[in-house]
Amino acid sequence: MSEVEIVNEPMPAPRASGLRMKGGAHIVLVEEATGKQVSEVYTPDYIYQNERCTRDGRKY
């Protein structure tokens, strides 16, 4: 079996020119009647901006 190296890429620095915007969301789905959380998702750029997880989505 090959050894796999997981590379977490660094946060990109702002560009030296131009104007850009990126955005990310942390969305939670909750069943209203019971209050039970049924789903939760972090989009990649949310993870990236908030450093809540590794780039491949695994929480630390």
């Binding site: 990126k22 939670v28 909750v30 069943e31």
Partner: peptide, 27 residues
């Protein structure tokens, strides 16, 4: 990227405050 199924009776929630549901960066 992987759209969510939202069943009848379910709320979509974006938290506020210290763990915000929406984060943008202008750069």
């Amino acid at each position: 990227a992987s759209p969510l199924s939202v069943a009848v009776g379910v709320n979509v929630i974006l938290s506020g405050g210290g763990s915000p549901g929406l984060t943008f960066t202008t750069y």
